[in-house]
Design a protein around this nucleic acid. Sequence first.
DNA 1: TTCTTGACTTGGACAACGTCCATCGTAGGA
DNA 2: TCCTACGATGGACGTTGTCCAAGTCAAGAA
Lengths: 139, 139
Amino acid sequence: MSDLLERLRARGWRMTSQRRVVAEVLAGEHVHLTADEVHARAVERLPEIARATVYNTLGELVALGEVVELSMDGRAKRYDPNAHRAHQHLVCSNCGLIRDVRPSGDPLAVLPSTERFGFAVSKADVVYRGLCPGCARAR
Amino acid sequence: MSDLLERLRARGWRMTSQRRVVAEVLAGEHVHLTADEVHARAVERLPEIARATVYNTLGELVALGEVVELSMDGRAKRYDPNAHRAHQHLVCSNCGLIRDVRPSGDPLAVLPSTERFGFAVSKADVVYRGLCPGCARAR
DNA sequence: TTCTTGACTTGGACAACGTCCATCGTAGGA
DNA sequence: TCCTACGATGGACGTTGTCCAAGTCAAGAA
C-alpha cells in the first residue's frame, strides 16, 4: 500500500490528499470496488472529496497500470488493485461476487494463428462464471 | 434468419411486426450491434418502433438463448446473433472491432479445482485483445 | 368473420454511471 | 516565501438503460 504511494511518487505523480486517500482506499481492501464505493469510503476520511476527483484518479491509476478496470456486466466498472499479479476473474452468476483466480497455463496459447485473423493479439481476459458456494447452497 | 423466426414461433413467441423487424435486423448482418444501432436500423423499416420495444425484444432474445449479450468496455452492450455456435471474441484495442473466434479446447479446462474456491463453474467468457490488421498498419 | 383478452407497444419520465468544464486551490520548485 | 502549473471542485450534461400507465393488437374461440 505504501508501496503504491512510493511507486507513484517515484513516477513524478503529484501527491495530494485526495489522491492519497483514493490510493489508500484501493490498497486497503482487496475487494473490487466501484467508483462510487471508492468515493463513499474516501468521503469518510476526507469529507469534501469530489466524485469527479475519484473518477479522475482512478482513471490515472489505470493508465499507470497500478489498477485494473473491470467491466463485468452492464453495471458500474470495478477497480482491482491487484494489478501486479496476472490473474483472471471468477464471478458468481447469482450474487455477483468476484474472486481473483490464476488459471494454469497461458490463455492465449489456445487461440490458433488461423483464428487470429491478422490481429496482433497481446492478452486474454477471462471471466469464469458459476455459482458461488453460498448461492449454490441456497438453491 | 427465417430459421430464427421459425424457432421463435415454435416456442410460442407472439409474433408482432416490431419483433419481426428486430429479429431480422439482428440476423441480417453478422456484426455486433448496440441496442441503439438495432433501433436505428429497425426504424428504417418500421418508423414508429419505440426504443423501449427494442430493449425489451433484445432482452427476450437473450433470455431465450437466441442472442448473446456482450458488455465489452464500459460502453453500450452489443448483441451477437451467433448464439448457436460456441465462440469467444477478439477485440481490437484501438478501434473496437470485434470478431468471433473459436479457440481450440475448452477454456474451462485450465482452471484447476484448487482455483475454483467451491464455485460450480459453468462457463468461461474470453476476450482476446490486440490490434487488428488495419490499426496495426496505421501505427 | 368477428369477438375477446391478455400480451405487447408506446413515449416520456426517471435512474445509474460517467464526462466535461470554468473556476478555485495548492504542491512543490525557485 | 512566492509562483505557477497542475489538480480539485461541483454542477451541468450526455449516454445507456429501465419503468410505467395507457393504448393497441395477435391469435384463439365461437
